[in-house]
Design a protein around this nucleic acid. Sequence first.
DNA 1: AAGTGGTCTAGACCACTCC
DNA 2: GAGTGGTCTAGACCACTTA
Lengths: 235, 235
Amino acid sequence: MTAAAPALSSWRAVLAELERRIAEGDWRPGELIPKEVDLAGEFGCSRATVNRALTALVGAGLVERRRRAGSRVALAPVRRGVFDVPIIRREVEALGAAHAHLVLSAKDEKPPAPIAGRFGAPAPKRLFHIRTLHLADGRPWVFEDRWLSRAEAPDIAALDLEALSVNEWLVRTVPMTACDLVFRAENATAEEAEILDLPIGAALFITERTTWRSDAPITYVRLAAGPGYSLKSRL
Amino acid sequence: MTAAAPALSSWRAVLAELERRIAEGDWRPGELIPKEVDLAGEFGCSRATVNRALTALVGAGLVERRRRAGSRVALAPVRRGVFDVPIIRREVEALGAAHAHLVLSAKDEKPPAPIAGRFGAPAPKRLFHIRTLHLADGRPWVFEDRWLSRAEAPDIAALDLEALSVNEWLVRTVPMTACDLVFRAENATAEEAEILDLPIGAALFITERTTWRSDAPITYVRLAAGPGYSLKSRL
DNA sequence: AAGTGGTCTAGACCACTCC
DNA sequence: GAGTGGTCTAGACCACTTA
């Protein structure tokens, strides 16, 4: 018999121990984990503490749980990754560079079909269309092409767009509830290449974001970043 | 006076109500939120329930909390996005296509410096290097270039690599605890273009992943996907 | 020093599944 | 129907920060 282990009376300690057992292979993928009550007994803590740790493991995608059936080490860990939604100004400043942005154009426009489609079935006749270039230490960094619902953000035209980026203004003014993100790679068109000062065809990292406020689309934005740009994440 | 609201006695209900207040602007960014005890009193539930909801909001990046100082609506919501870590086979099958993979090469090799660096300070002399091409309905989909620690996965050479993808074998066999992900865009090299049957310079969506098992790197993999590939996420 | 969040406990009841 | 996880409560103590 092993000597009685010191009680694990903090949920982080329990979490660490559970992670260890999974990492070391004590519990293999697909295997059943002892039930909460038993673990609580073993660790000398309350069931709630064990539950908190297990809940964290579920959140990390490392464990799957079902009532009555018990908890298992995730067999095919469709693990969930977490990343911080990029805020361009912060990214640039984090690189130790000075952030600035230029407004290339800003006007009401009839949106092309693919854009209009994102704004719902009764396609809006006009949207506010603003194209800006973000600079890091004066050099082109990210090209932002944004369409904005006039209904949701009526004051936009009055704004001093040079001073405050549209994104930051939105974040502070219009509460947002949901957001779709798509990342992809695309070759730079002639126009994008010129704006970003890159060769035509350069690989761009594209971020597309559509933001809703309870079913009403507020804005669609397409961010194009040149080489050197990357999105990082940890699990 | 408002009529007494029905008690919110589930943490999800409390969460929804807090989210609503933030979304509707009752509590503006940067503003102080009532303390847990008060909210518990207002909602007619226990402090633990309020705490659970607030903890979820912190996890979503919508609220910041500090002891003694109280809780505030995040001023610059560095919102956290969640995405499912791509599992190529599943992605392909989700598109309604048949998945297959070809092993292009598989052998022990001395890793180049940038790769070796990822495997820690005492750079391993040899790593198992395997290059595979994932196919969707017989057409090139993703090019996978992987380096594997022999120490962490000694049995790999004996495996029938054609039958089971390395990734799936790893997932089922070697428990993983931590993982770094980087996404970027790159132009296809001549070799990549040939493998993926794309023009040279085509924009590739690159995923780099390094996986550890408690501080010991298990594998580094670089996935290169052609046009049409995208990574989706919601907030 | 005091106030707020962070966490633990012990017990209880409910909800969902699987048998 | 019975077993497991999911959640709530009421109270308590601790830890961190700010005043």
